[in-house]
Nucleic acid binder design. Structure first.
Lengths: 189, 189, 189, 189
DNA sequence: AATGAATGAGTATTCATTCAT
DNA sequence: TATGAATGAATACTCATTCAT
């Protein structure tokens, strides 16, 4: 028996939402997966929408926290700061099951509330910060930040997605090489 | 009044599936958007699942057709062949409303049938072909093809998504620069 | 097969609400009684609350219409005007199954909307009009109008309720005698 | 902290049942109002139905007891015996919150058991006794007893209901005048 | 061929009741 | 004895699909 049913529910929802999407997942299915009664879910979340938003925000929070751990000093080389972002996101993707897939496939969803959208933007801002600084230093291409973010974030999402599904095997050194690729995509040549 | 109701239905479904996803879209909503009766949809598609699969396959087919137009000769430089892929996909993304978003957000969906999955793989194979050739020629990084595809494809999906939502404005020359970036991501330095 | 499913649903709801009350009646039960599918109810009424309010307002409207038929001239003797009210309500109670019971048992319900409450007040105002006029003419006791209404209306509701349940048999002449009693209750002696 | 949780529960249930009805009241709501845990209710009452029946019977018992207090001798004038009934019921309505409203709105409910129905009939019999005696003495109209009871009881229920909701203000002397009206309704003229 | 009203299986949510603490 | 978290059956409501017109 689990100590914390709220966490069981969130964990079950994460897995199912990542696999079938919010609308493709029924509440009883979540309850089954979490090994709780259907009614129990409503003791912790007012309704299904509150549940996704809670989950989304919790995931973004964890990802943000991960990104804020062992942050290189602001004076550190952009290259190093970029590496930090890449490997921290990668670390989170590895640590928390399907969280990145869930975030990526739901971050535009119409049922996300203002708060969820804001937190997601704040997460992107962490990447934007490094990219903007890199542009100022002339290290990163002078393209719109959103374009640069899209490339790096889009690549990473697709990559970790493939690793989860098994389409891509994580071998030693692969991540470092991919990080190099992502950096090459946006750096000034 | 439209000549071809089947196309009206597919067009309506494309827009709605891209925005709200398959499970978040009701058949009557598609009918409304297509300006046909709900029952009419079932004259053209046996059920909702057949509809998505038809739409998915039609989109992939169009995208594939676009990719097969004005193909550079197999002997052409890899750089040129990569450009062709990038700009053809880009062309398709611009031409057909939300098609790329729809494809990207549904290509892992559990309701896609064998045929749909196969066609999607064949589409990826077109990219894989150039990448593998590039690797053989020593022009492209010797990483797993799926990793390279993920980066290029993931970046493009995210990019065109942002352009649709307005988060990124398409200015003259931007596309060419982004293409350069994508190439830089995977080329040997 | 019925021409008008909306009416079937209202009729079924009337009977069930009168017998078991709004909260004691399930929507599927109404559907069964009306011989329609459960979903059909929602084609005609947005939800259960809209259904009760529609029914309530329709009943009040019919009752009001009945009260407005063959109205004695304003100059007619109060006694005659009182009789008109009594016998019209009585007529309605006899004509429309459980309508009066339904109205009486739901007119204070928390789910009635503003419009329903207003219409009920307007119905009471029809009684109030005669009573106030009677008080001015010195024919009816100088008590608060609401007290006089309560007595007459309360007595009638209880009476017709008993007739529906069979606790009181309607014999020739009985109604006229009861009307006399009600009049005696409020007239000046 | 209360001495008697059972009474707290009954008191809470009385108020809520009177306001929203049995089916419109949830057990946890009763528990909240009574300031006890939801489970506690089941220590005192086997289930919700047993709870209403207990409450109903308790109320009827109290009302009956009130009616049996200071009863005029059987030989007393009918007028006096009628007054006793009216003022005792009135006294009870004033003393015990919403008891009369609760009784009136639930006395036909399908969930009342045989015993509850019997006790309610016994209560009505107390009124019937005076009315029948009055009819024999030629003081009260020779109408079916149920009709006479309906008028008097129906009027009183409506009256006290209005007083509770504030639609009718209780002023000195008003009750006596209303009693007179009720008597006038059924007496021989 | 086209429609949209009708259906009922399926989904989100509530609530009487239980039971571990 | 008292609690309130947990349950799952029951309820309101939705939606893919059918079919009479």
């Amino acid at each position: 028996m689990s100590k914390n049913k709220r966490m069981d529910i969130l964990e079950a929802a994460l897995e199912l939402f990542a696999e079938r999407g919010y609308d493709g997942t029924t509440v009883p299915t979540i309850a089954d997966q979490a090994q709780v009664g259907a009614g129990t879910i409503y003791r912790y979340f007012a309704n299904k929408e509150v549940l996704v938003n809670s989950l989304f925000q919790e995931c973004i929070q964890q990802l943000t926290n991960t990104l804020m751990t062992n942050v290189p000093p602001a004076a550190a080389p952009i290259r190093e700061r970029f590496k930090h972002i890449f490997f921290r996101i990668s670390e989170y993707a590895g640590a928390r099951g399907q969280a990145l897939t869930f975030i990526a496939s739901h971050s535009d969803a119409p049922f996300l509330n203002e708060s969820s959208r804001e937190m997601f933007e704040q997460f992107l801002d962490l990447i934007r910060g490094v990219i903007d600084e890199g542009k100022e230093q002339g290290m990163i291409c002078p393209l719109p930040s959103n374009a640069l973010i899209a490339m790096v974030y889009g690549a990473m999402v697709q990559l970790f997605n493939m690793m989860k599904t098994g389409a891509l095997e994580e071998t030693p050194g692969l991540l470092a090489q991919i990080e190099e690729c992502c950096w090459n995509a946006i750096r000034v040549h």
